[in-house]
């Protein structure tokens, strides 16, 4: 086993383990932190696969995203500290079966499909970033711009939905 395979496996295992911890703990803060660790381990896994740009982007984005999520968890949960050990699950058996079946099906596809020859040459980190930059400004420009506009629309829609409704007579 190569060092790369070892580190991909290690960070993959860490990511899955912290993903499981998200749903095993009663504390909502621990859930949010476990998800942050899971996503960070994923970023480290990307770095192990020599996808430097994507790895760093993943760690930066998810650190911010999960910090916001932790704040919302404390705001909205009935028992954010988990001291009451409230069970906030339903249809557990069905969910376990669905999760396990989807895992087995995806592993079967990964193992039994002939993915073709593995690439022998690989661009270095600087070349990857150059290639991605050229791709974004060339063939995929429309897709990238559409993604930007969609985020902007989602932000406006989210603000419109979340804003406090003004009662009649209050708007002076």
């Amino acid at each position: 086993m190569t060092a790369q395979a070892f580190f991909i496996g290690f960070f993959g295992l860490a990511s899955v383990w912290f993903g499981i911890v998200v749903f095993r703990t009663y504390s909502m803060m621990r859930s949010a932190i476990a998800l942050l660790f899971s996503q960070t381990a994923l970023g480290a896994m990307f770095l192990s696969m020599q996808a430097e740009f994507l790895g760093v982007l993943q760690i930066m984005m998810m650190a911010t995203e999960m910090s916001i999520m932790a704040i919302f968890m404390v705001m909205f949960m009935m028992d954010p500290g988990g001291l009451g050990e409230m069970d906030m699950t339903h249809q557990k058996r069905l969910s376990l079966i669905a999760g396990f079946v989807s895992f087995v099906a995806a592993v079967a596809v990964a193992v039994f499909v002939d993915w073709g020859p593995v690439a022998t040459t690989f661009p270095d980190a600087a070349q990857q970033t150059v290639d991605l930059g050229l791709e974004l400004l060339d063939r995929s420009m429309l897709i990238f711009e559409t993604a930007g506009i969609t985020i902007l629309t989602a932000m406006i829609a989210a603000t419109a939905v979340a804003i406090q409704p003004v009662k009649k007579g209050d708007d002076k």
Binding site: G12, L13, V22, L96, G99, A106
Partner: peptide, 18 residues
């Protein structure tokens, strides 16, 4: 990597449903 992805997907399906 694909196995790790499959495991994350399975855990996510469990969480979203339960």
């Amino acid at each position: 990597a694909l196995t790790a992805g499959a495991a994350l997907f399975g855990v996510g399906v469990y969480g979203a449903l339960s």
